[in-house]
Write a protein that binds this DNA or RNA. Structure first.
Length: 554
RNA sequence: GGCCCGUUGGAGAAGUGGCUUAACUCAUAUGCCUUUCACGCAUACAUUCAUGGGUUCGAAUCCCGUACGGGUCACCA
């Protein structure tokens, strides 16, 4: 019997278990030596942030590489900021990137024996732990109002003291349990605070997997562990959940470094073994010459959905993020011609300590490389999936012309000098749209961009001759020789070199001939390889388009 | 402001006391290749590692001060 017992029993009448009981209920995981248990612990306050994806990617990778477990815990203790449905959305987005956990909160259901995985459903577990702390005199009710706290803070600031609830400023820590009980019974609102035994003048050292040893002043704040709504604060839930879910490495953003001393004291007081910590650098952007964290409100690129909508394959973004995580990843991809993260060996000590600027150019670079490695069939399937949701016009064309689309996407695909002209799925339609007859009609509705230095008559004759004489079932170089001959018949030099030697002798050169044909067929001066285009369209369609172009010229 | 973390070209970085005349990649520029575009290839881009001092035969690398940048100081996570 101690003086806290009556109070603890009154506040926690439902609790009839101890931490020792919980230890039995959530025993250490039976994993092989070296297996890491990591987690992603988002709060459902909006869609997935790029930084959160970064964190999940690393946590997922560490668990997978070590043969461990990656799970998701929903930190839904802030009921005010919670956005309906965002938990489910978060899981869907992780799935899009193929880094979804197999254990934990998975949207509509929980999987795993260390749950519940929603903090809002873990109230009893927290209460068990707090009751025990209270019996040990390490937790106490605090009746201070927000206004009182604010006043204290102002006094502290005026005196140039450290603001916060500690030492003599922690007025409620000296309230006797008997008195506290009376106040609670009378209906006074209260929170429960942790009684810190730390000394601000002492340093604690903890090891960070990325930064090495970090030395910070001990915690001496009597932080709130249970809010007046009965839910725990982050710090307390972190200690309890990561312990009982048996996390081995806590991977989180570097904004948590400064509260680590709180966590250290909490783990110690609760009798929990401290997990390993890895504090990841944040992703920033330049704003008026200053670096700042990507903000979901100000920066569209802070939200992962921006890239999904923008048509970036998940592999592109993951490759970019992995290149931030381990800069040698970039060299590795170049050597291996591979963007499969599973094959890459990740290491914490190759990670940068400094926040990095988000680099759209680099993402684009990775994305081009990634898309260039897809097979045409794969690209087609991905485009269908993407456009179904984000680009109705493309979707219609893809579905209506599957074979044509795949052939078009296959031009110069693969091999050493593969085309790399798609940064994202949005680039596809502008580049291959002309293959579709109705799109072609749209493009040429207002005319063809023929080079104006050539007489209409010359162009018409050339096109007529081309239509009559060409056989593009021939191999590319044989076919192109025939284009040269065609040009020669119409007084075009067979090469740029010849033309440059005697420009006055010729109307132009073979490049101009190719351009005229190209303009007639695709309605633009640029296109993928002309020979491939002609082969894919087929003679009938090519002749039809030439006829249309001639009509336009007449 | 206190406390933590950091500072190598426009960006990501390698570098752990002499192999550095600072690797590699992106971006940019120029040229080559080429029927266009894209690809590919070549070249250029930090006399210097925020800065001042110190240690040393020798420093981007070790030490100290300063400046700058970021993080954090809630009943938010």
């Amino acid at each position: 019997m101690n003086k806290y017992e009556e109070l603890a029993n009154y506040i926690f009448p439902d609790v009839d278990e101890t931490i020792a009981d919980l230890e039995k209920k959530y025993p250490p995981r039976n994993l092989k030596e070296g297996a890491e248990v990591t987690r992603f612990a988002p709060s459902p306050t909006g869609f997935l942030h790029l930084g959160s994806l970064f964190t999940s990617l690393v946590a997922h990778k560490v668990a997978k590489d070590s043969g461990g477990v990656f799970y998701l815990r929903l930190e839904d203790t802030d009921t005010k900021r919670e956005i309906e449905g965002s938990g489910e959305e978060l899981v869907r987005q992780l799935e899009y990137f193929d880094v979804a956990p197999k254990e934990g909160y998975l949207g509509n259901h929980d999987v795993g024996s260390y749950g519940p995985y929603r903090q809002s459903e873990r109230a009893y577990i927290y209460r068990v732990c707090i009751k025990e702390l209270m019996l040990k005199g390490r937790a106490y009710p605090c009746f201070c109002s927000a206004q009182e706290l604010e006043e204290t803070r102002e006094i502290q600031e005026a005196n140039k003291e450290i603001p916060g609830y500690y030492g003599d400023y922690a007025i409620c820590r000296t309230i006797e349990p008997e008195e506290a009980l009376i106040r609670i019974k009378s209906g006074d609102p209260y929170v429960i605070r942790f009684r810190s035994m730390g000394n601000h003048n002492n340093k604690v050292v903890f090891h960070d997997e990325i930064r090495g040893d970090i030395s910070i002043a001990e915690n001496d704040m009597d932080i709130v562990i249970l809010k007046s709504d009965g839910l725990p604060t982050y710090h307390f839930a972190h200690a309890v959940d990561d312990h009982f879910m048996r996390t081995t490495t806590v991977i989180r953003g570097e904004e948590w470094i400064s509260s680590a001393p709180i966590h250290l004291e909490l783990f110690e007081t609760l009798g929990f073994k401290l997990p390993k910590y890895a504090h990841l650098p944040v992703i920033m952007k330049l704003d008026n010459g200053n670096k700042r964290k990507l903000s979901k409100r100000k920066d569209p690129e802070a939200s992962v959905s921006h890239f999904i909508e923008g048509g970036y394959p998940s592999e592109s973004l993951k490759a970019y993020l992995m290149s931030i995580a381990n800069s040698n990843f970039e060299e590795w991809t170049a050597e291996n011609k591979c963007y499969d993260l599973d094959k890459f060996i990740f290491s914490f000590d190759k990670m940068s300590l400094d926040g990095v600027l988000f680099d759209q150019d680099k993402l684009n670079f990775f994305s081009k490389e990634v898309i260039a490695l897809f097979s045409a069939e794969d690209l087609y399937a991905r485009l269908v999936k993407w456009s179904k949701q984000y680009d109705e016009v493309l979707y219609k064309h893809l579905i209506g012309n599957k074979e044509l689309s795949i052939k078009a996407l296959n031009i110069e695909r693969g091999g050493e000098k593969a085309r790399k002209d798609f940064t994202n799925y949005k680039d596809v339609y502008p580049i291959i749209g002309f293959f579709y007859n109705d799109r072609y009609a749209e493009i040429v509705k207002d005319g063809y961009p023929f080079n104006e230095k050539f007489d209409k008559k010359v162009i018409i004759d050339l096109l007529n001759d081309f239509s009559r004489s060409n056989d593009y079932t021939l191999a590319n170089d044989v076919w192109f020789n025939s284009v040269k001959e065609l040009g020669v018949r119409h007084n075009f030099a067979e090469s740029n070199k010849f033309y440059k030697q005697n420009p006055e002798q010729y109307l132009g050169h073979v490049g101009d001939v190719a351009e005229i044909i190209r303009v007639a067929i695709v309605g633009a001066k640029n296109s993928p390889n002309l020979h491939s285009v002609l082969q894919i369209l087929g003679k009938e369609e090519v002749d039809r388009r030439i006829k249309l172009a001639i009509e336009y010229l007449n």
